[in-house]
Each structure stands twice: as structure tokens, then as C-alpha cells.
Design a protein around this nucleic acid. Structure first.
Lengths: 137, 137
DNA sequence: CCGGATCCACCAGGATACTG
DNA sequence: CAGTATCCTGGTGGATCCGG
């Protein structure tokens, strides 16, 4: 304990430097940090959905991005894709158990956000007021 | 309960559509879903850090991105920035209480990732094997 | 040491048209 | 209905140089 600065309770392991190149956090964020993945997961958390149902449920998502998003989730084993040989084609998506375990995390995120949303908004207004002509955003 | 498909326990509220435009999850992800924010938060979770210390601790981050990242965190009230009128300038960054509350979330993310990392890797290999010539990633 | 200012490359993601 | 194929643009982030 001869360090030059105060250390606090190390709830988190160091990561991100050359010695500890990967604490795993970036993995999750690369998976759910994109624009649509969480919304798909949230929707599927309510039950099995067809392609069109997902697209209608998620406002603003393009056909292309829904396809890409759902493919990646399938590749990671977070959702299953079931094709029924009907005509026209019918495809359903469902969370796997692994995917369901993610919904718990997502709920934590949502709770934290709702809890601090207002305060953060206030902080931003104050910051922008005290720092005019800033390009931060 | 006359719906056409099975519903599961609604641990998560619906969100993302026009009726429920915002469940708040995107807010958090816009804040910590970027390339560097979490790493900065993780590093600051161990204690106060100077600008150079942060840059050395976080492998690969450019000066510009560290500045931008830390500014955004400051704007949101997640870190405090303290300037000491020495020469050359000395600046320290520290997590606020709000920022510290985020480290709990980040830890959940890291735990989930480490727990499922291997299985996801296996799923991907299997998927890529069964679906050659794919542009998914 | 701590940045700000510029320039630039890349790619996530939108729009559109077409197919089984 | 459930995609695939193309084209195109805005923004993220890297590299570099400069200044207090």
C-alpha cells in the first residue's frame, strides 16, 4: 500500500491494458451494444415471435438490420431459428436458455437507466450551460 | 389469454415500438456501449487516475478518444474532473457516486461474459461450420 | 502533461429493388 | 412471408500536428 493515490474497493478486476487484455466486458457489449440486439432480446423475452412480428414490434428497424441482428444472435446461440416448410415461408425466433439469462442483465440495465435518467439529464443541461460552444455531445 | 402464441413470464416490459418508445435500455447502451467508456469506468473503479495514467492503463486508446470519452462521462455526471493549477497541468478523474453505481452493472456484465464466453465460442464455430460462405460475422 | 483542431478511413446501418 | 443483393451516407474513431 505504498501507492501514490488512494485505491477503493476493487469490485472490478483491472482490464483493458496489455497485461489484462480481456476482462470479457467488451465481448458482451460487442454483442448487445449495437443498435438493435437488446430490443430483439426484449421482444423475444415475451415469447416466440415470427420475423414480421419482430419487425412490427421494433419501431424503425429495417428488414436488413433485423435479419443481420437475428442472425448474429443465432450464431451466438442466444436465439433459435425455426423454419416451417409452409408456403409462404414461416419462421419463428425464440430465446434459448442462454439468451434468457441475458434478459436478467438487460433488466438491470433498464432499471439503472430509469433510476438515473432524470439526474443525468440535469447534469447534461448544467454542463452544456457551463460549457457553451462545445462539440462533445 | 387468447393470444395465438405462448407468452412467458414478462420479466421485461415491452419497448422499442411506437407505443412504448423508450424502456430506457438504449440510454445506458448509448452511454457505455461505445468502444472505451466501460474500460475507463473499470479503471476508475480502482481509484482516482490522472489523464496519462488512464491512457497507459487502457491499451490502444488514442489521446483524442480518451478525451472525448472522459468528457462525455463528465457531462453525464459519472466522473469528476479536477484541474490542478500546476505546471505542467495536472488533471485527475474520479468516479462520482452515480458512476460507482454503474460499476455494479459492469461487474454483472463481466460475470455473464466470462460464464458464457466458451459456450458462445463453440456455438460460433459450429454455426460457421454449418453455414459456409456467410458474411454475417 | 493535457489536451484542441484537422484530416481521413472504415463500417454500421438505412433505402430500395428483387426472389423463393 | 422471409429474406438476399446493392448502393450509399453519416458518424465513430484513428493518426497527426499544434498550443497552453
Amino acid at each position: 500500500m505504498l501507492g501514490s493515490h488512494m485505491e477503493v474497493t476493487p469490485v472490478l478486476e483491472p482490464c483493458g491494458d496489455a497485461d489484462h487484455p480481456d476482462c470479457g466486458i467488451r465481448d458482451v457489449l460487442d454483442r448487445i451494444g449495437d443498435k438493435w440486439s437488446v430490443l430483439v432480446i426484449v421482444e423475444l423475452a415475451s415469447g416466440t415471435r415470427r420475423f414480421r412480428e419482430l419487425q412490427r414490434a421494433i419501431d424503425g428497424i429495417s428488414q436488413r438490420m433485423l435479419t443481420l441482428t437475428v442472425r448474429r444472435l443465432e450464431r451466438d446461440g442466444l436465439v433459435t431459428r425455426t423454419v416451417y416448410p409452409t408456403v409462404p415461408t414461416q419462421v419463428t425466433y425464440e430465446l434459448t436458455e442462454r439468451g434468457s439469462s441475458l434478459t436478467l442483465l438487460v433488466k438491470q440495465l433498464a432499471d439503472w437507466s430509469l433510476e438515473h435518467k432524470d439526474a443525468i439529464g440535469t447534469s447534461r443541461e448544467l454542463y452544456d450551460l457551463q460549457n457553451p460552444e462545445q462539440t462533445i455531445r
